[in-house]
Nucleic acid binder design. Structure first.
Length: 262
DNA sequence: ATGCCTTCCATAGGAAGA
């Protein structure tokens, strides 16, 4: 059982890459972020043809999240994060897929800082922390996967020097991430690769991809019962190397799961 | 301090990303 997260940076532009990736890697569940398309622009037919069911929450121009599930329709349980009825950004969707409750999130970037966007990021993070605690406490198998827009430590970036003032490295952002983990969640990539640098994002500027100047900002957080079943975790870097690639690469975790009946 | 490059929306160039 393999679960992945992929910030596509535009589902319309990236559809050929998405389909090529699904075909080659066959994730059982895929969380997508930055659809940058309204609901009616979601390419459901192509995704069905690839063998996946989907739920999605779109928005014109910005944001937008989706959950794909191989061979079944995900059962949607929620399509926004509670705690602020005025927040209309499409940044959270949740569904039951392959026996796991999957929360797919696109946490606000927060730049420029200081300012209202950084305040929004921290407020969104607090809503996530408040929502995640009772979810963890249910004991249900849960994955909270997505683009967290947080570089957890200085080991998760090629060189923190030029990013020191960026919202992704702020002590407040990192503290919020660590408080979320302190509820009991396991950062799958960190757990599977405790002593090596793993990047999931390389920006379009300054030839950062060819020079492997990356950041780790896409994370899969696992409930306790899933964390003990981690078999492997990694990043599908070949997708970042395609022409006209997203600036993020698909990031995944594989579990050793008991066979389900049927 | 800003631009770098890429997306969307629209059809020029601005907003946003990170």
């Amino acid at each position: 059982m393999k679960m992945a997260t992929f910030n596509v940076n535009g589902i319309t532009s990236r559809l050929p890459h998405l389909l090529e990736w699904l075909e080659r890697e066959q994730p059982d569940v895929a969380c997508l972020q930055e659809l940058k398309a309204p609901d009616r622009g979601f390419p459901l037919q192509a995704i069905h043809d690839a063998g996946y069911g989907a739920v999605w929450s779109g928005q014109a121009s910005w944001n937008g999240v989706a959950i794909l599930s191989r061979g079944e329709d995900p059962i949607e349980s929620r399509r926004s994060l509670p705690g602020d009825a005025r927040d209309v950004h499409s940044r959270y969707i949740e569904a039951l897929a392959h026996g796991v409750l999957v929360g797919c999130l696109y946490l606000p970037n927060g730049n420029p800082r200081p300012g209202p966007k950084f305040d929004y990021k921290l407020a969104w993070f607090e809503r996530l922390i408040a929502y995640a605690q009772p979810l963890f406490d249910t004991g249900y198998p849960v994955v909270l996967a997505g683009d967290y827009n947080v570089v957890p430590t200085d080991a998760d970036i090629y060189d923190p020097k030029n990013w020191r003032r960026d919202a992704l490295l702020q002590p407040e952002s990192r503290d919020a991430y660590e408080r979320l983990l302190a509820q009991g969640w396991t950062d799958a990539l960190r757990a599977a690769h405790p002593n090596e640098q793993v990047f999931t994002f390389w920006d379009y500027f300054r030839q950062h991809w060819p020079r492997n100047r990356g950041l780790r900002i896409d994370h899969l957080l696992l409930s306790a019962n899933l964390a003990k079943r981690i078999k492997a975790a990694g990043v599908d870097r070949w997708v970042r190397d395609l022409p006209k690639a997203s600036d993020h690469a698909p990031t995944w975790v594989e579990f050793a799961m008991p066979r389900r009946n049927g």
